[in-house]
């Protein structure tokens, strides 16, 4: 395993780089999109709520692979050029945004209603009350699940291997094919995934415990 790791260090490292890049981009983008849909889901207008809910329910029930493949295969045929990394990252973003929307919505709704009412009666607008009063309280509840979403993103970004997205899994497949040493290659790839995900996972558990008891 170590032999494979050292002799293919450049390829593995670049794969890890693409994996992390896809995960970080998708996390930020899905945080924005997810929060927008979370706000739609709790909107005061019925139709906005319906649209928000429909998006979340639809995306949550479809495999990530199907979404990523659709972007890779369909978009370039009809709309525009799109490489595997881009298609995969967009797929990851859309998929994850639905889960983040649920997390953020639950976080916001767990802040007691009285907080919003109190802020409003003190003369704050709905938006002001949201950003100054509700969000800061919701964020503590939301951070650990968001951390877990990031771990999921790192793991899920392996679907980039299906669309030639240069990620860690893709590089692993190429190395396995070049060296014929499948077992050791995937062991090395596994270790590299764990180097990212394990510390994250323990850190999130620690935060959850601490903030839960606080």
């Amino acid at each position: 395993m170590f032999k494979i790791m050292f002799s293919n260090w450049d390829a593995l490292l670049s794969g890890l780089g693409y994996t992390l890049m896809a995960s970080v981009i998708a996390l930020i983008a899905s945080l924005i999109i997810g929060t927008a849909f979370a706000l739609m889901e709790i909107s005061l207008h019925k139709w906005v709520r319906v649209i928000g809910k429909a998006y979340v329910e639809f995306i949550r029930n479809i495999p990530l692979l199907v979404i990523a493949m659709a972007f890779y295969v369909i978009v370039p045929q009809f709309i525009m050029q799109m490489d595997g990394f881009t298609a995969g990252t967009i797929g990851l973003t859309i998929y994850t945004s639905a889960f983040i929307a649920e997390t953020v919505r639950a976080g916001i709704q767990s802040v007691p209603n009285g907080q919003m009412e109190g802020a409003r009666s003190n003369g704050l607008s709905y938006m002001q009350a949201m950003t100054h009063v509700v969000f800061p309280q919701a964020i503590k509840l939301v951070i650990p699940p968001l951390g877990n979403q990031f771990i999921n993103l790192v793991k899920n970004s392996s679907v980039l291997a299906f669309v030639a997205g240069f990620d860690l899994m893709y590089q692993g497949k190429l190395i396995a094919n070049a060296t014929f040493n499948t077992f050791d290659t995937y062991l090395a790839v596994g270790v590299l995934y764990l180097v990212i995900t394990m510390p994250m996972s323990y850190a999130m558990r620690y935060l959850e415990k601490r903030w839960h008891t606080a």
Partner: peptide
Amino acid sequence: DLIRNLPLLLLLF
């Protein structure tokens, strides 16, 4: 924890 933190794709292989 080890299994949870690996991509399923890798486990399938």
